[in-house]
Design a binder for these strands. Structure first.
Lengths: 159, 159
DNA sequence: CAGAAACTTGAATAAATATTCGAAGGCTCT
DNA sequence: AGAGCCTTCGAATATTTATTCAAGTTTCTG
């Protein structure tokens, strides 16, 4: 796209970072640097390091995942510890969890932004997540499965 | 403190690793290598990298923490997402959590080995953890506070 | 027992990320 | 205007951890 390099402010750049890591499959901070360059924004890897940490972006296996996260509140990275099984059914996703932890899983799903979920109900060891339609339910199920399958950790070091 | 270097088998070495990272305050894999050398066991950093990953050791802020959990089950690293406050009282620790997540916190505390806790009761947003005595309760409270304060992540990369 | 396959390990190296240092810009206060 | 004082950022570098490669062991199998 634009071969011209623009200078943008921090907020704009961070928004752009969230966008590019959602759209593409970026595995290193250098990848992010390249993706930004592609959008016409030149930054150093050091800046990306700082931005990812500030944004609280996750690294799931070998790619970054933008699923913000009121700072301090539970993020999607905790799901692997609790989720035992995921089954999409029509526009719903049935999530089987360790006993007693359905409430926590439901709480996380409610809070994470960017998920196509309209509501959740938690029992003791099962969460029912309601999506707008079957396609969305499939997406949600896949995303959760991804996060649970690969090693998921926060990107960046916050002092 | 033998200055002689022994060659021990993998299990012994990994047990020793768990011991030294409990006893001392080790911040890098090199530190672990040195601590092992001090115990008379010579290993390479590469080996420590592999061992820490296998053991599921956590890195809390700038030091390793040995709190093993059954692989796949929830580890102590998820607590920061749910815990809002920690108050030791006599031989108990009262843990205030996000609403609906007390069950999960209680489940984690029950499962993590090495904590001086004899039992837990979970309400909706509060967990009561019972320790054998006041000293143990204080230790537990401090440990949880540590984990919640610093950035906590699994050590090692599992393929 | 020969040979293959699988595990374990260290040395060296690569890979990935964090941090230091310094510069540049924007504030406010006087 | 000029003196402090943040904030932001890139270049270079340091730090930390993972992986590759080759070698030594053990274990399995015919």
């Amino acid at each position: 796209m634009g071969a011209t390099s623009a200078t943008v402010d921090k907020t704009t750049r961070q928004d752009l970072i969230l966008r590019v890591i959602s759209e593409r499959d970026l595995g290193t901070q250098q990848d992010v640097v390249r993706a930004l360059a592609n959008e016409g924004v030149e930054v150093a890897q050091a800046t990306v390091s700082r931005d990812l940490a500030e944004l609280g972006v996750l690294k799931v296996g070998q790619h970054y995942l933008a699923l913000p996260h009121d700072p301090g509140s539970a993020g999607i990275e905790v799901l692997p510890s609790f989720v035992l099984g995921i089954v999409p059914a029509q526009n719903q996703v049935v999530i089987h969890t360790r006993d007693g932890t359905a409430g926590a899983v439901s709480s996380v799903l409610d809070r994470v932004k960017g998920l196509k979920i309209v509501g959740t109900i938690a029992g003791q060891d099962t969460v029912l997540a309601i999506a707008p339609d079957a396609a969305a339910a499939g997406e949600v199920a896949n995303l959760i499965a991804d996060v649970c399958r690969a090693k998921t950790r926060p990107a960046g070091h916050v002092e």
